[in-house]
Simulated scan of single mutants.
Amino acid sequence: DLEVWPPVDAVPVDVSGLYTELAGEGMAYGPLFQGLKAAWRRGAELFTEVELPQDGHQDAARFGLHPALLDAGLHAIGHGDPAATAAGAMLPFAWAGVSLYAVGASALRIRLTPTAPDDPHTLALLIADESGRPVASVDALTLRPASSDQVQAAGGAHLDS
C-alpha cells in the first residue's frame, strides 16, 4: 500500500547530492533521467519518489511505464551504504514477474523490498502513481555490481548522447 506518503515509520534518505556522486563514478545522467526526488528507508525496505521533468510529462503517455521513471526509482539503491558503494554500482540484471496495471504516469512512488534476508541483490518492486494507485509490480529484480571502470568502459568513446 503506497497511498500513505511518505511511508509511516520510514527514515528520510538524503539524495540531494546523488547525481553529482553518480557522475563522479562514471554514471552521468541527463536531465530526463535525474528524476529521483526523495527516498526513505524502513528496515530493509527502500521507498523512492520519482518524477519526470515538466518538459517530459507529455511523453509519459507514450509508454506503459516511462523508462526514465523506472530507472530513477532505482538510483537510491545502496546510496549511503559504504559496503554497497565499495561493491560498485548495482545495475539491473534480470527481471521476473513484471505486471503493468496502469499507463501514462509522470510521477511514481516505488517500494523496493529484498526478496530474502540472505539475498540483498534481488528485490520486489511495488510501483504506484502519485496518489498511491497501483501502476506496476515486479516479483524479482536481480541486481549485479559494476565497478566505475566497467561502467566507463561500457560507454565507449561517445559518452554524450
Rank of each mutant, 00 (worst) to 15 (best):
D1Y: 11
D1M: 13
L2R: 03
L2S: 04
L2W: 11
L2E: 06
P6T: 03
D9Q: 10
A10P: 00
V11G: 02
V11S: 05
P12G: 05
V13H: 03
V13K: 06
D14M: 14
G17R: 07
L18P: 00
T20R: 07
E21I: 09
E21D: 15
A23Y: 14
G24K: 10
E25G: 04
E25D: 06
G26A: 12
G26E: 09
G26F: 15
A28M: 11
A28N: 04
Y29G: 04
L32D: 02
L32Y: 11
F33P: 01
Q34V: 02
G35W: 13
L36I: 08
L36H: 03
R42N: 04
R42T: 02
G43T: 02
A44I: 08
A44P: 06
L46H: 01
T48F: 14
E49S: 08
E49N: 01
E51A: 15
L52G: 02
L52R: 08
D55M: 12
D55K: 06
G56D: 12
H57Q: 07
H57N: 09
Q58R: 13
A60Q: 08
A61G: 06
R62K: 10
R62M: 14
F63T: 00
H66V: 11
H66M: 10
P67C: 09
A68G: 04
L70W: 06
D71I: 13
A72D: 07
A72M: 10
L74W: 11
H75Q: 15
H75L: 14
I77C: 02
I77A: 02
G78T: 02
G78N: 06
H79G: 00
G80H: 05
D81R: 08
D81P: 01
P82I: 13
A83W: 13
A84N: 00
A84I: 05
T85I: 14
G88Y: 12
G88C: 07
A89N: 06
M90Y: 04
L91E: 05
L91R: 03
P92S: 10
F93R: 10
F93G: 01
W95V: 15
A96I: 04
S99Y: 01
Y101V: 07
Y101Q: 10
V103H: 04
V103I: 05
G104R: 00
A105C: 02
A105I: 07
S106P: 10
S106K: 09
S106D: 14
A107G: 04
A107K: 08
L108V: 05
I110K: 09
A116P: 00
P117D: 05
P117C: 11
D119Y: 06
P120S: 03
T122F: 07
L123K: 02
L123H: 03
A124P: 01
A124H: 00
L125C: 07
L125D: 04
L126T: 04
I127H: 00
A128R: 01
A128M: 05
D129R: 11
S131F: 14
A136E: 07
A136G: 07
D139V: 05
D139I: 00
L141D: 02
L141G: 05
L141F: 08
T142I: 13
T142Y: 12
L143V: 13
R144I: 14
R144V: 15
R144T: 14
A146H: 07
S148H: 08
S148E: 12
Q150R: 10
Q150C: 01
Q150W: 11
V151L: 13
Q152E: 13
Q152M: 15
Q152T: 13
A154G: 02
G155A: 03
A157M: 06
H158L: 14
H158V: 14
H158Y: 11
S161Y: 13
S161G: 08
S161K: 12
